[in-house]
Design a protein around this nucleic acid. Structure first.
Ligand SMILES: [Mn+2]
Ligand SMILES: [Mn+2]
Ligand SMILES: [Zn+2]
Ligand SMILES: [Zn+2]
Lengths: 124, 124
DNA sequence: TACCTATTGCGACTATTTCGCAATAAGTAA
DNA sequence: TTACTTATTGCGAAATAGTCGCAATAGGTA
């Protein structure tokens, strides 16, 4: 399955990069200037996740949020990092803090989903 | 709002205590011997949460799971603990490990939702 | 330019959770 | 026991999120 470049992909990726936060499909659809179908947005996002460009977080509201993976120099966000969800401004951001844990013997951890909820810096 | 004792409450609570794991509404409904309406189960569970007897976890599958709060002697489970979700047996259990984090300045954390996903001891 | 197939839009569909409302029943006091 | 208040329940509808099948479209390549 070779990936193709499409306006939809570009628009969604640019939006995620510009915003810098984790966004839900709903928020993405609202912020997009072009109109893209709901199912297409999900497919684009899931393909980004498969390709390792984006990661998915499930918050306490049960919704999926998507954020670009930043492994670059400036903001060094570790692989398994905490996320913060502000109840006021409804945004989710990646925190530059790694999740520390040691699963009990025999438990094989494949993925981590950690979300802290509260009021963010801007809203307090 | 004074709480009343009902067979539904008792059945759900006993099931959660006996199982010892975090259960979804679906799993609860299946394991229950008596038949209780879907909406009622949710209402019972949410009331338990309000009263601090049960805590709610949202897993990567976007579903809500409920587990009794064990602050007792034998298994000392800390307040903000990790949870482990087994992809194989579809169960979620509370891990006896506290979530360690330090939110950035200005961020006020009100609740924590941390789930590790993988294969549990019994399934590996 | 022609072809292959990845991608899209649309509608239908599933799943989870909540809500309104009337009926029921737990607790309390007479 | 009986009467009364209202917390709780069952039922159906509704809201929300995400997925899927299918035909149409369009990106990449030769
Ligand atoms: Mn992140
Ligand atoms: Mn727990
Ligand atoms: Zn905020
Ligand atoms: Zn297991």
């Amino acid at each position: 399955m070779k990936r193709r470049n499409t306006p939809s992909k570009e628009a969604v990726l640019h939006l995620l990069v510009n915003t810098g936060k984790a966004m839900s499909r709903d928020a993405i659809e609202q912020k997009l200037e072009v109109e893209i179908d709901r199912a297409t947005i999900y497919r684009v996002l899931n393909r980004f996740c498969e390709d390792g460009m984006v990661h998915k977080i499930v918050a306490e509201d049960g919704k999926q949020y998507f954020a670009v993976c930043i492994k670059c120099d400036e903001k060094q966000i570790p692989d398994n990092h905490f996320h913060f969800r502000c109840k006021n401004c409804e945004t989710i951001e990646c925190l530059p803090e790694a999740v520390q844990f040691s699963a009990p013997n025999g438990y094989n951890v494949e993925s981590v989903n950690c979300v802290l909820t509260g009021i963010c810096k801007d809203c307090s």
